[in-house]
Structure formats: structure tokens, C-alpha cells
Amino acid sequence: MSSKHILRVVPLLERLSLIRFANESGVTRLQEAIEFADQLLDVNVDGVEPMISPNETKCTLLRHDIAHHTTKEDITQNAKHLVEGYFVAPNQ
């Protein structure tokens, strides 16, 4: 990944991860993390069943009891601040 591309996505990554990358050591750390994660592309996954992941389109119950249905609005109504529907942690 080119340095130009990384520098374009740095502000978004900082906002999403709450970690500052806007200096040379931060960009280096980010580049190393991306290179480390790129190793996953070399893993042979032929014949491996995909993991089941809960998402918005499928309800995966973990227990055999009565589930109480809640909506995203129910959960986020007490949030002090949301960005694009996600909770935002305070900056320190």
C-alpha cells in the first residue's frame, strides 16, 4: 500500500480507532499493522467452513431461553454522542 493512500485514510482510521496516526511513527505503526494483516491473504482456506457471525440480518441465539427483543434505537437512546449510528468514546 502506498504512503499516499495511507495518508488519505489516516483521518478516518484515527476517528474509528481512537488512535492518533498523524505523525511519522504513527504512520509507520499503521503501515506495519497493514503489512502484518496482509499475511491473512496468503492463508489457504480451501475446505474451511465460514464462521457464523451475528449480524443485522440474522438472529443467532446463544442460549435456549426467552430472548427479549431490543432495537438499535432502544440501545442507543441513552448514548451521549453517536457518529454514523455508533457509540463514540470521549477523547482524553
Rank of each mutant, 00 (worst) to 15 (best):
R29F: 13
V45T: 13
E35L: 05
V48G: 03
T57K: 13
H5Y: 14
R63A: 05
L7K: 15
N23E: 12
Y86N: 12
C59T: 14
T57W: 05
F87N: 00
E73M: 13
K58S: 15
V45N: 04
L18I: 08
A67Q: 07
L12Y: 11
S53C: 13
A89G: 07
I75G: 00
E84N: 10
E73Q: 14
A37C: 02
A67C: 06
S17Q: 07
S53T: 11
V45E: 09
L16D: 09
M51L: 11
I66F: 10
R63H: 09
H69N: 03
I66P: 00
N55P: 06
K72R: 10
F21P: 02
Q92S: 13
M1G: 00
G26D: 13
Q31G: 02
L30F: 07
P90L: 05
H64L: 11
I34K: 06
L30S: 01
Q31H: 04
R63M: 07
R20P: 02
S17D: 11
G85K: 12
L12F: 10
E24S: 15
L40W: 00
I75K: 04
G47K: 01
H5C: 15
H5F: 15
F87V: 04
E32V: 00
K4H: 13
I34E: 05
V83Y: 14
N91Y: 13
Q92V: 11
P90C: 01
A33E: 10
L82C: 10
Q77L: 07
P11G: 10
L7R: 15
K4P: 05
L41H: 12
I75N: 03
D38W: 00
N55W: 04
F87M: 04
Q92T: 13
T57L: 12
M1P: 00
F87P: 01
R15H: 06
Q77T: 07
Q39L: 03
A89Q: 14
I66R: 07
E35G: 00
L62V: 07
P90W: 09
L40Y: 08
D42F: 00
E73V: 10
L13T: 03
H68N: 08
N55L: 08
D42S: 10
G47S: 06
R20A: 09
E56G: 15
T57C: 05
R8E: 15
V48M: 08
T70L: 06
I19W: 01
E14P: 01
K4Y: 10
T76W: 02
T57H: 12
I34M: 02
V27N: 05
S2F: 03
E32K: 06
R8D: 13
V48W: 03
V88K: 09
V45P: 00
I34L: 08
H68M: 09
G85Q: 11
Q39G: 05
V43Y: 13
T76E: 06
T71C: 08
E49P: 03
K72N: 09
H5E: 15
Y86T: 07
Y86W: 11
P11Y: 07
K58Q: 15
T60V: 12
F87A: 04
G47W: 02
E35R: 04
M51K: 08
T28L: 14
D74P: 02
L7P: 01
E56W: 12
P54H: 08
L41A: 11
V88D: 08
H81T: 06
S3K: 09
N44Q: 02
A22F: 08
T57G: 11
V45K: 05
E84M: 07
D65M: 06
S17L: 09
R20K: 15
H68S: 08
E49I: 06
Q31I: 05
N91L: 14
L16N: 07
